[in-house]
Design a protein around this nucleic acid. Structure first.
Length: 592
RNA sequence: GCGGCUGUAGUCUAGUUUGGUCUAGGACGUCAGCCUGCCACGCUGGUGACCCGGGUUCAAAUCCCGGCAGCCGCACCA
């Protein structure tokens, strides 16, 4: 707590404030373009932050791509308009807004019509701006705040628009999600990866959303790193063979059936149960949610600070038929979305198929060729000709279009059948069982999409690593996301200790560790500095090093020290960072 | 976008009410050096700021207007 400038209000210094101060000072993240006054919604990830963020992204690559044999695609940010016409974004990624001419409050026009004119969202979605205005006037919708009249409705498009090349009619947009890059290239990717299903492709890259009012630091940005994983399945075989690996993992769910009753009761169910009770529609979606829970635990968030919230239809994106947001509890903002899991069905591939005319179906051969028995109508021309004369060919056309089964039944049951005005008698037709062979089937794969906000993950990792001890800040990052692994410090700046330490530093760098040498200030000050950026181990070269080639290793978490031989360091440290050894196994304890 | 509050070195802040030794003070940090045999010790020195642009005035950190940014509320958030 501290007093604000006016001296009257007590201002709480929350974790976000402490973290942003640290992040700016030490180089994790800070607002962009500050020397020109700053622009909200844009941040930089600095020397330490960019490493940490990249390590989180690498962790995603390990957990979701390498272990499952999935692939990555890097695609452009600037996207031609037709892609977002096909994907529905040009139509849906904007909101009609109206402003009250009296009190200046702004509202979503479609929400007003749904509430006060009792229109459905399907109806309001189809309306043009002038039709919206007409509907508002016809239904006498007034400002719910002050009863005032509304001005002209206007669209706010949340995609950044640009012109591609010098011709302004070549409209392009900054992508608001990376997913479309994958859908557009699906056919080629599918072939390149040898036509397997299920298969998944991920893109880790920047996305742009022109947010109306982004005011939450790294949590809501106009330009941010998105991690989109598009996982393609055969809708007729939606089962996930790995489900048993996670079936006992407990998920904390907040379901729409409870939310609709106004209850915020989180239910804890195993993955197995969530699937069998149909809380989660598809097995793969449940599987990814379980993986993601573990992933978020491993970047430092305990499971009771996580939950999955099922989204209502009106909260979901236009392409989603079931969606869960994974939320993490943050000190300032409460439950905050870090990832989303959407069942996108064949919505996107179908859209691109229609817009581009390119076939996006996949062909799956049957194990055994399928013999399809089909009942076929064979008109008997010689019987029909004399009866229908010049209309014979028309009647034959009708017969071929009719359902053979129904026709056969009708003829059998009532002895005749009417097709338009023509009376068909049993002797006009014969029925045969035709056998055709099908070697496989064509279909559009369905998509399960886990999607993460990389910037949010990095912020979340910072917040959960943050701790204070004896008035100092310590970032207790998990070992695999630390920006700096090791520091090598001479105990004092004389008697050859700095030289010895520099050599050791070079040796460890050669071994592949990220390591820094520091001789500034007292040893205690240096330990504090490295605690503050989350460096797990400090290696100190002291007088005993000169005597017997041993060094002390000091632990960020416990502030304890052990002593180990320099020769053993590479192996010990590799094992430590791979979580094969704990700190106390690194050497013999030093009493302090 | 709207309304309220706010904007001084990397951070926290003094100064703003009442314009004038403010050449903007301090603390922490940081850098150089000394010191230092293990947890932000001490000493010397350096570094570094009035958010941006206009206006009023002999004179603006201070008063006025606009912009930008931050916080809170409303709205928005696929």
């Amino acid at each position: 707590m501290r007093f604000s400038r006016d001296g009257l209000t007590l201002k709480t210094v929350d974790k976000y404030e402490k973290i942003s101060e640290l992040a700016r000072r030490r180089g994790f993240f800070w607002p962009s373009y500050e020397i020109y006054g700053g622009v909200s919604g844009f941040i930089n990830w600095g020397p330490l932050g960019s490493i940490m963020k990249r390590k989180i992204e690498d962790k995603f690559r390990n957990e979701f791509l390498h272990k499952l044999g999935l692939y990555e695609l890097e695609s452009p940010i600037i996207t031609p308009e037709r892609v977002f016409i096909a994907s529905g974004h040009v139509k849906s990624f904007k909101e009609p807004m109206v402003e009250c001419t009296n009190c200046k409050k702004r509202f979503r026009a479609d929400h007003l019509l749904q509430e006060y004119a009792k229109m459905s969202s399907q109806e309001t979605d189809r309306l043009q701006l002038n039709e919206i205005q007409a509907c508002i006037e016809k239904n006498g919708v007034k400002c719910p705040e002050c009863g005032g009249n509304f001005g002209q409705p206007e669209y706010f498009l949340t995609m950044f628009k640009t012109a591609i090349g010098p011709y302004s009619d070549a409209v392009g947009y900054g992508r608001p999600e990376a997913a479309q890059g994958i859908f557009v290239e699906f056919k080629r990717l599918y072939e390149q990866t040898r036509e397997k299903l299920p298969i998944g492709f991920a893109t880790i890259g920047h996305a742009l959303r022109n947010e109306i009012s982004p005011r939450q630091g790294p949590i809501r940005l106009r330009e941010f790193t998105i991690i989109d994983l598009e996982f393609f399945i055969d809708p007729e075989h939606p089962e996930c063979p790995y489900l048993e690996n996670v079936e006992n993992e407990v998920l904390r769910l907040l379901l729409t059936k409870d939310r609709v009753k106004g209850e915020n009761q989180i239910i804890e169910v195993s993955v197995k149960e969530a699937v069998s009770k149909k809380y989660i529609m598809t097995e793969w979606q449940a599987y990814f949610m379980a993986l993601s829970k573990r992933f978020i635990i491993e970047i430092g968030v305990p499971e009771d600070k996580q939950r999955f919230i099922e989204k209502f239809a009106w909260e979901r994106a236009h392409y989603s038929v079931q969606g869960f947001d994974q939320e993490v509890y943050l000190d300032r903002w409460g439950w905050t979305e870090v990832s989303g899991f959407n069942y996108r069905t064949d919505y996107d591939l179908k859209g691109h198929m229609q817009e581009s005319g390119v076939d996006m179906t996949v062909f799956k051969p049957y194990k055994i060729k399928k013999v399809v028995k089909e009942l076929v109508v064979k008109p008997i021309h010689s019987e029909m000709g004399p009866v229908f004369k010049e209309e014979t060919s028309k009647v034959i056309g009708l017969l071929l279009k009719a359902d053979p089964k129904k026709l056969q039944n009708a003829l059998k049951d009532q002895g005749f059948c009417m097709l338009e005005n023509f009376k068909i008698l049993p002797n006009y037709v014969s029925f045969i069982e035709k056998k055709t062979e099908e070697s496989g089937r064509k279909f559009i794969p369905h998509v399960i999409e886990p999607s993460f906000g990389s910037d949010r993950l990095a912020y979340v990792a910072l917040e959960y690593a943050y701790s204070e001890r004896k008035g100092r800040t310590v970032l207790n990052f998990p070992l695999d996301i630390v920006p700096l692994q090791l520091a090598v410090l001479p105990l004092v700046n004389k008697d050859g200790l700095p030289e010895k330490a520099k050599n050791l530093c070079a040796l460890l760098a050669k071994e592949g560790f990220s390591v820094e040498y520091d001789n500034g200030g007292s040893i205690g000050r240096r330990y504090a500095r490295f605690d503050e950026i989350g460096t797990p181990l400090c290696i100190t070269v002291d007088y005993q090093t000169i005597e017997n080639e041993t060094v002390t290793i000091r632990d960020r978490e416990s502030w304890k020290q052990v002593r180990a031989k320099i020769d053993d360091l590479p192996k010990l440290l590799h094992d430590f960072f791979q979580n094969k050894l704990t700190f106390s196994n690194l050497g013999s304890p030093i009493k302090s």
